[in-house]
Amino acid sequence: SGELYCSLLNPRNVRFESINMKNVLHWSAPEGTGNGVLYKVKYSVYGVGKWIRKAECRNINRTWCDLSSETSDYEDQYYASVKAFLNGMFSDWVETTRFNPLTDTKIDPPMVSVSSTDRSISIILTAPEKWKRSPEEESISLLQVYPGLQYNVSVLNKKTKKRWFFSVSNHTLVVPWLEPETAYCVSAQIHVTTPLLDSGFSKEYCIATLKDK
């Protein structure tokens, strides 16, 4: 006898969102469905093609799933797929486009620390780290992943409102011959030429030069 076949609309906008290679699969619920929809997730390595179920994302009601661990080798590319089900109905598997962690990740701004003397400010820049499974795991700086990484640094003189730009490859910058007792605000951006990856500018870190000795 014909089996009653009801299908659920598909999850929408299935894609990876990646920051510093923390690679999280995101999607939107099928149109018109309220609460109660559950999902399951699978992923595959491009070229190997075997779909592997992500156990921690089985029967979940949230619309994201962290696949950072499964996609941590950035020499590979990946696909992921999501299926929705509700009251015995289920959708098709909906896939992402091919995900390349090396080119498809976004990079956070660098950390900026500033110190000052009466006539200079010293800026130390630290590139963010690649996502890692646990705090105990060895840290990998994005500098190692993107050897051509550079920093664009902006220095704003709060008194004159003039902003200067520096482009540096190493992680320290000293700006000498400044005005004593003057506030300077520093922000920095990471710039990788190929693949073309720019972080946003960090927030501004302001510091005043000391009184003239």
Binding site: N152, S154, V155, K162, R163, W164, F165, F166, S167, V175, P176, W177, H191
Partner: peptide, 14 residues
């Protein structure tokens, strides 16, 4: 060598 033309580029101190 200036590759980034964002705005005012710092060359050196005088």
């Amino acid at each position: 060598v200036v590759k980034e033309v964002s705005s005012v580029v710092h060359l050196d101190t005088m």
